[in-house]
């Protein structure tokens, strides 16, 4: 399992310097680390977080947004009509709730359709794993500024230390 500190450090090393989002239990360890390092600005909705990240990018920062995949649904219009339209990159760190159906009932639908949904709206994505972490972070670094659009790093349960649902 990847420690939260190592996860945050890897993102800081890439250059991410503005973190916002809405919590999910899978992200609890990462958010705690970000709060300890005074890097995290909480938002109240995921689309608000995405728009704040877009504003931070306009102000010269390199933003990342933490959310559950439920929040991905909430953010869809903002991702399409703001980030993708205006070319505002941000890293979406998305908790994959409902992964393989093993989760609370409300996560089943989005857990199933999340990756086809990202494909449909043409947001590049990759699923983080312990074994490929170095490659995954390199992919984030390379894809982020090259494409100038949002890219998503998907976090399954048990990959980064946090509270497990």
């Amino acid at each position: 399992m990847i420690e939260s500190e190592a996860f945050v450090q890897a993102l800081e090393d890439i250059g991410f310097d503005f973190f916002t989002g809405v919590p999910d239990v899978l992200l609890a360890g990462v958010i705690e680390t970000l709060l300890t390092r005074r890097l995290y600005t909480p938002a109240v909705r995921e689309d608000e977080a995405v728009a704040m990240a877009a504003g931070a990018y306009l102000g010269g920062r390199v933003p990342a947004v933490l959310m559950s995949n439920a929040g991905l649904g909430t953010s869809l219009n903002t991702l399409l009509s703001l980030n993708l339209l205006y070319r505002h990159p941000c890293l979406l760190i998305v908790a994959w709730r409902g992964f393989e159906g093993h989760d609370a009932p409300e996560h089943r639908s989005m857990g199933q359709v999340m990756t086809p949904l990202l494909d449909t709206v043409r947001i590049p994505h990759r699923t983080l794993s312990d074994a490929t972490a170095l490659d995954d972070f390199n992919w984030v670094a390379q894809t982020f500024m090259k494409t100038r659009i949002p890219v998503a790093l998907l976090l399954k349960p048990g990959v980064v230390r946090g509270i497990q649902p």
Binding site: F18, T41, A43, D47, E48, A49, A51, M52, A53, A54, G55, A56, Y57, L58, G59, G60, R61, P63, N77, T78, S81, L82
Partner: peptide, 15 residues
């Protein structure tokens, strides 16, 4: 992105 003007402005203000 209707509804997001203040959030965009807030991001700029924080940056």
């Amino acid at each position: 992105s209707m509804g997001m003007a203040a959030a965009i402005g807030l991001g700029v203000a924080l940056a």
